[in-house]
Design a protein around this nucleic acid. Structure first.
Lengths: 124, 124
DNA sequence: CATATAATTTACGTTAACGTAAACGTAAAC
DNA sequence: GTTTACGTTTACGTTAACGTAAATTATATG
């Protein structure tokens, strides 16, 4: 009972265009099955799309998202590969943690700016 | 005793190229003084640059960073403008808060991936 | 069966954010 | 005085991430 989606359904659900889905496929980020020439997306595709869009909101490039997804469902056996993967994962995590700090700083700045606006309004 | 910087000093300090600094100026994000044709950056310019690069790490476009900087040092008097500004600031904050959630989710995913890697390594 | 609807491929266009190269001015150092 | 180092402007090139348009095919519906 694996659910499947048409390209339009998926596009509408996530608020992207069909062009975008085809483009992601072209870049190897999605790989829907074909039902006599027309694309059929599985739940796995849907999950991938969710990860890609989350990555976009965080400012990742498609390539970065692709590499993260690869990490995520990589069933590598080779020890060397695994250690390389761990290194990569930790590197990415450090970037994200830096982002967290940046985010908090920017939220603080915005709060200061807003407070000053409000003050400016009330002390008429 | 306001400190000033050459284009190279500033570029080196922040790890960007001089081209980048000139480009930001062209886009109105920086406005260094000219000392007989050569650019001289003030502390204010330096702060702006820091904000711009922070924005970049968060995936903002230069235009967005510019608008945030405008909010930040806007001394607007007009009530209407101030209220518009507050609305804008709150909108941006909501985006950032969504980013925070995305970030935490992605960090979790990466942790899961790493743990699986490590397990894969130890259960040889 | 004709027509409307949605899918497909192919391909050129677009924008942001710089890179890169050319051609030139200036000032210190050898 | 000329080489070296750094600055300047002008301008064309590049990459990512799609947009957009054209031409074609397949399915459904009246």
């Amino acid at each position: 009972m694996s659910i499947e989606y048409s390209i339009r359904e998926l596009a509408d659900e996530f608020g992207v265009t069909t062009r975008t889905l085809r483009f992601y496929e072209e870049k190897g980020l999605l790989s829907p099955k074909r039902h006599n020439h027309t694309r059929t997306y599985s739940n796995a595709d849907r999950t991938r799309l969710r990860l890609i869009l989350r990555g976009k909101r965080l400012g990742l490039t498609l390539e970065e998202s692709a590499s993260i997804i690869l990490m995520y469902d990589s069933k590598t056996g080779n020890t060397e590969q695994l250690e390389a993967l761990i290194t990569k994962i930790r590197g990415k995590r450090n970037q994200l943690i830096q982002q967290q700090r940046d985010l908090e700083l920017m939220l603080l700045d915005l709060k200061v700016a807003e407070d000053r606006c409000i003050q400016s309004l009330t002390k008429v």
